[in-house]
């Protein structure tokens, strides 16, 4: 049963249609990957789902209710959280202070669990701007996961990470979604990582859905191979 849906979502930047009639459906405990070449409209899609960008057509639906016009804060307080393509943290605060701040607002009962799972225990007293970039990405993810969200929209959480950090990050996403029964939408350029991590994958091309389904099904789709993956995939 879908907990969060995009129904016929279109987003326009002036004359440019960044997303056109996109349908995506997320289920609890599942990781739904969105891939596509640069300019396919992946980040715009997350912006529209999270309330950062107003769609020009279509609906964003939570538990069957149309929430397209709802504010960013309303969505967060109703369990829709997100991370950002460029690390969005509080650089001058210590890791612990910013996580506590977000936890206090969102009634997180198990902040210690999030910190442990993401391996942030060693850096809680460190100023965030002074820790390694990979750890900053984990802090970004931790902020998004605080408050037991039901839906997490992750915009390239592996951007800028080295290979083994990226693998670890996607493992964390996978584990946390299963443990916490979260529906996750994962936008990512690391195609292999997405195929390894996700239960369902949607491929966007020029703002439109090119293919959608289980990883094996998408990998075998001739349209996807021709437009995006190439013959080596």
């Amino acid at each position: 049963m879908a907990v969060f849906e995009a129904r016929g979502l279109s987003v326009r930047y002036g004359a440019v249609l960044a997303n056109s009639d996109v349908d995506v459906s997320l289920e609890s405990g599942q990781v739904h990957g969105v891939i596509g070449p640069n300019g396919a409209g992946k980040s715009t899609f997350i912006d529209a789902l999270s309330g950062r960008k107003r769609p020009s057509a279509g609906q964003v639906v939570l538990d069957g209710e149309d929430i397209t016009g709802r504010s960013v804060r309303w969505r967060r307080s109703h369990g829709i959280s997100r991370s950002f393509q460029r690390t969005s943290i509080f650089s001058s605060m210590t890791v612990g202070r910013q996580l506590e701040m977000v936890a206090r607002r969102n009634d997180e009962p198990d902040l210690a669990g999030i910190i442990d799972t993401l391996g942030l225990g060693e850096v809680v007293d460190r100023v965030c701007g002074e820790i390694a970039y990979g750890t900053q990405r984990s802090v970004d993810l931790a902020i998004a996961l605080i408050g037991r969200p039901r839906v997490v929209l992750l915009d390239e959480p592996c951007a800028g990470l080295v290979a083994d950090e990226a693998v670890r990050m996607l493992q964390h996403v996978r584990e946390l979604c299963r443990e916490r029964n979260v529906a996750a939408l994962l936008v990512e350029h690391d195609v292999d990582g997405v195929f390894r991590t996700c239960d369902v994958i949607t491929v966007l091309d020029l703002g439109k859905v090119l293919s959608s389904g289980a990883p094996d099904q998408v990998r075998a789709d001739p349209n996807v191979i021709r437009a995006y993956l190439g013959s080596a995939a």
Binding site: S88, F90, S92, R97, Q98, V102, R105
Partner: peptide
Amino acid sequence: SPFGTILEGVRENEERMRFSNYN
């Protein structure tokens, strides 16, 4: 105080504060 932390958060990254459910 926690209020001071919120102010610091708003100063540092207002958009992330809104996406963290802060007015």
